[in-house]
Design a protein around this nucleic acid. Structure first.
Lengths: 210, 210
DNA sequence: GCACACAATTATGGACGGATGATCGGATTT
DNA sequence: AAATCCGATCATCCGTCCATAATTGTGTGC
């Protein structure tokens, strides 16, 4: 072996890191579609590889398995959603109703804008084992903190566990999205927003709603 | 071969139907534990059979596969829970608050009375494929109808989709149970009941809560 | 009439092929 | 030469089937 060889040379015009990132990205794209449409359980690694034009071996250099890929996908979706909602809440009028309306509309519109994102975030993420369960728990926790912070200025005095309240309304929102995903006749987005906003407003607001 | 042989004789003191029912029951019992503790994904058919002291072949005479067994288990849990909640609601004082308090307390106490039931109904049921997804949708629909009927006498006039409201509060209750199942420090049952009842009461009640 | 051998039925456990997950060497490209 | 791709390989699990063991009812000798 000669010294001076470039052990990290370019290949197809990309550096080693770029190639790895490119493969990861292609796998993420393939999984974004396949995990949503045939579903996580029905998607084999071979199918993912052929869709992403990647060898079976390269897959395991990017992810540890199907679960890890789903986890990465889910975490990306959650980050994007969190950013969108946080931005909408920040720009909303500084009232509880304004923040709730803005945040919920932003979340629902962003989530339903791409059918696959909704499916992955609300259905497929619960399919796999404990790893994904923990990933989902972290996501729910992040949204719960966001809700608690956004509603902190408008607190009711009732001696209720605020974290549990936040978790509950998150669950409500999720169930509504699941209905949108699975129901025979899809409810209107506006109806979803109204129902979710109603539950948030009544549950988080002070005893006498405006 | 002689005629007159009893093609449906008893074995170990049980008739053919009894034996089949017994095997089904033993498999249900084994799955009730194994699907909850190692989890649905981690439970092989072989493990179920050895736990139930049943041959591999006999399994497929009782159920079509792991999914069908989980479906049967889930449907039984849902039936029992529905009955308990319906009974509690019927015996409750005839006010919205009374019905909500009674129904929610009954549901939460019954569900959490056995750790495994809560796990199967709220976590493991979402693991498998479309069959179980549809089973869960039917269960949610049944509970949604129960809620709509129980709160029909106390309707608010707001032009909201009542079914979506019912779905939402069901989602809230589920998320609270998931928190109870997965959180590091388990919240008190009473706290769960209070939070869920608050969300139900505010979301389903008239604009001016008593 | 009673006990016992025997045959028929049932259940069990393991064996077998197929599919998928995860890993490893040879051919091809840069 | 280095890196990548493709095919081959082993292990595991599902779904099915067969051989063996257990149990029951019948018939027969006494």
């Amino acid at each position: 072996m000669l010294d001076g060889w470039n052990v990290n040379r370019s290949y197809r015009g990309m550096s080693a890191e770029q190639r790895l990132a490119d493969r990861r990205e292609r796998l993420m794209t393939a999984a974004y579609t396949l995990y949503a449409k045939p579903g996580f359980a029905a998607t084999t690694i071979e199918r993912l590889c052929s869709e992403a034009r990647i060898s079976n071996r390269a897959f395991y250099e990017c992810f540890g398995g199907r679960e890890e890929l789903l986890q990465a996908l889910h975490e990306r979706c959650v980050e994007e959603s969190l950013a969108v909602v946080a931005k909408a809440v920040q720009e909303a009028p500084n009232t509880l109703e304004g923040r709730i309306q803005a945040g919920i509309r932003a979340y629902i519109e962003f989530t339903t804008a791409d059918w696959r994102r909704a499916r992955i975030m609300h259905v497929e993420v619960r399919r796999s084992g404990d790893v994904l369960t923990m990933s989902r728990q972290r996501a729910v926790d992040a949204f719960a903190r966001l809700i608690q912070e956004a509603s902190a200025d408008f607190l009711q005095v009732a001696p209720l566990n605020r974290r549990l309240l936040a978790l509950g309304v998150i669950g409500a929102l999720q169930e509504l999205l699941i209905e949108w995903l699975l129901a025979d006749e899809q409810p209107d987005i506006d109806e979803l927003v109204d129902a979710a906003a109603h539950i948030f407003m009544r549950s988080l607001g002070s005893p006498e709603p405006a």
